[in-house]
């Protein structure tokens, strides 16, 4: 009976801890969002974070996008050649990159690099009393640290996703032209015709492209917020900072994948594809 009671107590403790954690997460999100329109604005901090997140993550995303596009073109060409449909490599690479691979890959890389960085930085500030020091000077750490990072995450990840998509499509082009032997014109017209097929938003932007950008907007906020949450909750010295960093990356990555599914469902309702 004692063993059973112990298990029940543990489960109870876990549920309570999780519920409190979720509540604190959304409270942090609410306060950080409110401060976007409340003085003082820490625009300089936001710009610095944009530089760190955007420029800092660009090289690794260039590589990721390039090789993902190349592999996608290589694999799909082998399968499509069996049916004599290798001229559709461009369509497949284009739609895969823009709809799913670009946003999700960029977000996962972003979570690994930026989410961990945020959690480690804020966690270190927590355990070395720098957050207390900020508060002692009348500064709200959420306004000073969390809000600028969320602004930076929300604004930078869509831009990085566009770059990832473009580089991925370019990688596919290189492989298609030099390894598969299909002309660049055929490849690029395949990319464009598939994107155009899903319809246009405001008559100008391909629907798939807009949907592909709506996702990183949300992912950027989720990743930055998760990093900040775990950083601010860090306890117990360097070990605590390490733990916070790991948790931030794992949670942010899982959230990206889960949110991606529900967001896709939502966007299919809000912006249905033509035909």
């Amino acid at each position: 009976m004692n063993g059973m009671a112990g298990i029940v107590a543990k489960v109870d403790g876990w549920i309570q801890g999780t519920a409190i954690g979720v509540y604190q997460y959304f409270t942090l999100a609410g306060r950080a969002s409110r401060f976007i329109v409340a003085r003082p604005f820490y625009w300089r901090d936001a710009l610095r974070q944009m530089d760190r997140m955007g420029v800092g993550t660009l090289p690794i995303l260039l590589l990721t996008g390039l090789f993902t596009g190349m592999v996608l073109a290589l694999q799909s060409s082998v399968a499509l050649q069996r049916f004599g449909a290798d001229m559709y490599v461009g369509s497949l690479v284009g739609v895969s990159m823009v709809r799913e691979l670009g946003p999700v890959l960029a977000a996962l890389i972003f979570a690994g690099r930026v989410g961990s960085g945020i959690a480690a930085e804020i966690g270190s500030m927590r355990v070395t009393e720098q957050l207390d020091a900020l508060q002692s000077f009348g500064t709200d750490p959420i306004k000073k640290l969390v809000t600028p990072r969320i602004i930076a995450g929300v604004s930078m990840l869509p831009i990085l996703t566009i770059v990832t998509n473009a580089v991925g499509i370019f990688g596919g082009l290189v492989v298609t032209v030099y390894a598969v032997g299909i002309s660049a014109d055929v490849y690029l017209s395949g990319v464009w015709s598939t994107l155009a097929q899903s319809g246009f938003i405001f008559g100008v932007f391909p629907r798939d492209f807009v949907v592909g950008l709506a996702k990183p907007l949300v992912f950027g906020g989720v990743i930055a917020l998760t990093g900040c949450y775990y950083g601010m909750a860090a306890r117990g010295g360097t070990e605590g900072v390490g733990l916070a960093t790991t948790r931030a990356v794992v949670t942010a990555s899982i959230l990206v994948l889960v949110v991606n599914y529900f967001l896709t469902q939502l966007l299919m309702v809000l912006m249905p594809a033509r035909g």
Binding site: E121, S124, M125, T128, E129, Q130, D132, A133, S136
Partner: peptide, 13 residues
């Protein structure tokens, strides 16, 4: 109020 922290808590960045 001014506060001097145990390990100074200077902003290290």
């Amino acid at each position: 109020i001014g506060m001097v922290f145990q390990n100074a808590a200077l902003f290290d960045s």
